[in-house]
């Protein structure tokens, strides 16, 4: 564990907390892509199956459980609790366009042909593109709320800082994982492209957000 990894993980937690608190406080999931949240749910579930097979540290296990649980909560809030506020007519990206290539690529390019490893690889590829439905939803709606800007910046910087962590680990520990590095670079590029795609989108303030 180094400072880059810890800082990145904190940003990851901050991003998720931003999203959940927004839904909770405004009792609305307007502007949030349920499809991206489903993809993130899949990412965490397929990656953290090693909770049952490998123990790394208490920190590691607690964070994994946190990501799986909060992701399930987000999906529950969007599709059950605050279903009426979910803007499904704006959340139109077809997730099979992301799921199928990631599934195929993880079967072809992985570290080892065993189920857990292929699922970990799938999860790593999928995470790099999971934000795309959210970016398209914002683009389609033409407006973005401030919480979503914070969410995207925090989520984008989390993986970018992981890139620094990987460079650091390569230098200090001669440790590297090409699949993680490749996907991390792709993920960071997608967030940067996303910010270009969204420039010109109007920053809106929702009525409910202004309530104390």
């Amino acid at each position: 564990m180094n400072i880059f990894r810890f800082a990145a993980d904190l940003l990851h937690v901050f991003a998720i907390a931003t999203l959940l608190l927004k839904i909770w406080n405004t009792r609305s999931c307007a502007g949030i892509s349920g499809k991206s949240q489903i993809l993130f749910g899949l990412v965490y579930v397929t990656r953290y199956l090693d909770l049952f097979t490998t123990y790394v540290s208490l920190y590691n296990s607690v964070m994994k459980v946190f990501f799986v649980v909060t992701s399930a909560v987000a999906i529950f809030l969007i599709y059950v609790q605050y279903k009426k506020t979910y803007e499904h007519d704006l959340d139109l990206f077809r997730i099979e366009l992301l799921l199928l290539p990631c599934a195929m690529l993880s079967l072809v390019i992985n570290h080892e042909d065993i189920v857990l490893e292929v699922l970990w690889t799938f999860s790593t590829y999928l995470e790099s593109v999971a934000i795309i439905p959210q970016l398209f939803m914002v683009k389609k709606s033409g407006g973005i709320e401030k919480f979503m800007i914070r969410y995207l910046i925090a989520f984008g910087s989390y993986r970018a800082i992981y890139l620094i962590n990987w460079a650091y680990r390569y230098i200090m520990e001669s440790h590297y994982d090409l699949i993680a590095i490749f996907a991390g670079i792709l993920q960071t590029i997608i967030y940067i492209l996303g910010f270009f795609l969204l420039r010109g989108v109007k920053v809106v303030v929702s009525d409910k957000e202004e309530e104390p």
């Binding site: 990894r5 490998t54 590691n60 994994k64 570290h111 080892e112 490893e117 992981y162 440790h175």
Partner: peptide, 10 residues
Amino acid sequence: DQDQLTHDEL
């Protein structure tokens, strides 16, 4: 390469 397959990151 067992070390690489123990994914110790999140």
